[in-house]
Design a binder for these strands. Structure first.
Length: 655
RNA sequence: GGCUGGGUAGCUCAGUUGGUCAGAGCAGCGGAAUCAUAAUCCGCGGGUCGGCGGUUCAAGUCCGCCCCCAGCCA
């Protein structure tokens, strides 16, 4: 940790967007990093905010009969409230409609314009009257609007451009000589990949007001507003006083970590650095692109109905558990998948069974064997081999966490802490304080429990940035306040005689009870030996059910949907297979069906059939099949299952 | 299509410069224990490390070819 300060940013989120897990993840990650750096005693500044200009806000405002600013003021609250709920400790929340931002953006534009970094140009383009949208030649689909398919008109348009192309060679060199600039490194390769193979174009930074009114006026031409990136990206420096407060600006800039999703890599590793270069401002130390959260195997999408609402998850399982899962489950810059099964599994095993239960048993024994008072530690408390080993494990978690913050591998830091937690559980099995107590070895019991508590003290400090609320609860049990770095490596911090509180259940075990989630395959439960018929096991929650009968929930796990057959053709080299193009609601899919002996391709086109929509896709004859259709067959006859009456659209739920 | 990355136990993944590198967690099975949240602890993995060749005394680890997957191409 060589740096004197830590400045972390999230992207500013589009104010019109509904907050989702992607927003929540980036912001929680930034928060965790900020909290760790504060814990390490490093001056820290954490910025997030909202991007509030643009067409969508303008349209939403019109629709709602509001002024665009009112529209923003209403919707920005969704983000602000979510961050409060998720325990986000940002130091500032910038909105691009604030004067402090707009004024500086205009100053920057004027300066760049004066220095000929920005120029005016006329060019040919295409306009779709229906969509009120402008396109360049290559956007068009066979000369038509890519949105609505209608004919686009050729028009002449004027705009302002930033001479980004001037900086291509400089940028390539910069990225190659600053490996820490784009992280993870394979993302740097991506940026370099196209910088080296394509000629960088100049960046259009304006929109005529006729097309877009809701934006920051260009200071040198009031017929235009600033277009998205030149407005939005500058937030990272306008918020900390660029051109307004040199002391504050120089204190924080250049940013240490600028966190982004991989979808905005180019803007942050090409537009942003070249803008800064033109302005004569140093580049951020690291732009870090993280992956996306997927649910199951598919990308999060509304049409699939698998969007995980972060607010809802936080409500159901607790904010801290949610934060823990997100940080523990995401590896470096990879994509990660969010499923309730995975969540429940990790929650139960890491938080409930390992950590929560460890606290319970420790506190319980302190109450039972030590009068509920912290017994204190002698000078030679660490003299035994098991004690040395345990403390070494705890200290290696401290070291691992420290290094994992630098390398952004927080998940491996958390793994190290959990390893230490398990070590304490093992330590109990070795020392068996309950046996020591029976044998009247009071002092030995004291040492054992005190060491466990000290270990929990350090682990809770290491987990505090991820789970601030729960770890505060845990620490208060031992009379501890906020964690302090200097105490992480010190032994014997809890004062002798401290009354030990009763924490209740820190992380109650949870059961998977959502019908959307795929249940775990049934596992044969074996009777434990020595247990009679009346044992607790037999009073299981699951009622017995007859062989071959399934429950309502099990039926509902199979998603049956109606689908319209759009096209069908034979699969070459397979006499039984047809390749079908089908439509389930908005979604198009292809599936392979073994019905070619019974149906000519022409005969199935246009039919509404019934398909299993959530079957894992498979390759049949090397062709992907995304689903399975239902048909009835007896002997050598086969007929498709279809609907009795045509419905207005496909994708209907079959039940 | 071009470029980049990846294919390691049922699942998610670690594996630094080639030589205890065949591993961890979860799931599963067997056992122990009873302080604890039906929690804990111990033991159990015959996986062609995607396939085929090659280099080497020695290759998940290097080279070549092939197959599959993912990402990027403003």
């Amino acid at each position: 940790m060589a740096d004197e300060k830590y400045y972390v940013t999230t992207p500013i989120y589009y104010v019109n967007d509904k907050p989702h897990i992607g927003h929540a993840y980036t912001t929680i990650l930034a928060d965790v990093l900020a909290r760790y750096h504060r814990l390490l005693g490093i001056p820290t500044y954490f910025l997030t905010g909202t991007d509030e200009h643009g067409q969508k806000v303008q349209q939403a405002a019109e629709k709602n009969g509001l002024m665009p600013q009112q529209q923003c003021d209403q919707t920005v609250v969704r983000f602000q409230e979510l961050w409060k709920r998720l325990e986000i400790t940002h130091d500032d929340f910038i909105r691009t409609t604030e004067p402090r931002h707009k004024v500086i953006v205009q100053e920057v534009l004027q300066d760049l314009f004066d220095r000929d970094e920005i120029y005016r140009a006329d060019y040919q383009g295409w306009y779709c009257v229906g969509c009120e949208r402008f396109f360049v030649e290559k956007d068009l689909v066979e000369g038509n609007c890519p949105e609505c398919g209608r004919k686009a008109d050729a028009i002449q348009e004027t705009n302002y451009f930033f001479r980004m192309s001037n900086y291509q060679d400089w940028l390539i060199d910069y990225i190659e000589t600053h490996p820490e600039f784009i992280q993870p490194d394979f993302r740097a390769n991506e940026t370099l990949g196209f910088l080296k193979t394509k000629k960088l174009q100049d960046l259009c930074i304006s929109r005529p007001k006729a097309r877009l009114a809701w934006g920051i006026d260009l200071p040198f031409d009031s017929d235009f507003v600033t277009y998205v990136w030149f407005d939005a990206l500058l937030n990272y420096i306008t918020a900390i006083g660029y051109r307004r407060d040199d002391v504050q600006f120089n204190q924080w800039w250049p940013a240490t970590h600028q966190l982004i999703g991989k979808d905005i890599l180019t803007t942050h590793t090409v537009y942003w650095p070249t803008m800064l270069k033109a302005m004569g401002v140093p580049l951020p130390k690291t732009v870090f692109a993280h992956g996306w959260w997927l649910t199951g195997r598919t990308k999060m999408s509304k049409s699939l109905g698998n969007v995980v609402n972060p607010m809802e998850m936080a409500d159901r399982f607790g904010v801290d558990a949610f934060r823990y899962f997100l940080i523990a489950e995401m590896t470096v810059g990879q994509d990660a998948s969010f499923t309730e099964e995975a969540f429940v599994r990790r929650y139960n095993s890491d938080l409930a069974n390992d950590l929560g239960n460890l606290l319970s048993r420790t506190v319980n024994m302190l109450g039972r064997y030590c009068d509920g008072k912290f017994p204190g530690l002698g000078k030679d408390a660490l003299s035994g081999a098991p004690e040395k080993e345990l403390w070494a494990a705890v200290q290696s978690a401290v070291a691992e966490m420290e290094s994992s913050i630098d390398t952004m591998r927080l998940n491996s830091g958390l793994t190290a802490v959990l390893t230490a937690v398990r070590k304490v559980n093992q330590y109990f099995e070795i020392k068996q304080p309950w046996t020591q107590a029976k044998e009247g070895k009071t002092e030995a019991v004291g040492i054992t429990l005190a060491l466990a508590a000290e270990s929990l003290r350090v682990c809770s400090a290491l987990l505090y940035p991820v789970m601030p609320e729960k770890m505060s609860e845990l620490r208060s049990v031992f009379g501890l306040g906020k964690p302090v770095l200097s105490q992480l490596k010190t032994f014997g911090v809890i004062k002798s005689g401290t009354p030990v509180g009763s924490p209740g259940i820190l992380f109650p075990r949870v059961e998977l009870n959502n019908a959307e989630a795929t249940p775990l395959p049934p596992q044969p439960k074996k009777e434990k030996r020595g247990e009679g018929a009346a044992s607790a096991k037999n009073m299981s929650i699951e009622p017995e059910k007859p062989e071959g009968i399934i429950t309502y929930d099990e039926v509902m796990n199979v998603k049956l949907r109606t689908a319209k057959v759009l096209a069908a053709e034979r699969v070459e080299g397979a006499d039984k297979l047809l390749k079908l193009k089908i439509e389930i609601g908005e979604e198009k899919r292809q599936l392979i069906a073994g019905i070619a002996l019974y149906y000519e391709p022409e005969r199935v086109i246009g039919k509404t059939i019934v398909v299993v929509a959530n079957l894992k896709s498979a390759k049949i004859r090397g062709i992907e099949s995304q689903g399975m259709l239902l048909c009835a067959s007896v002997g050598d006859r086969l007929t498709l299952i279809t609907v009795d009456e045509e419905l207005p659209s496909s994708g209907a739920v079959v039940k």
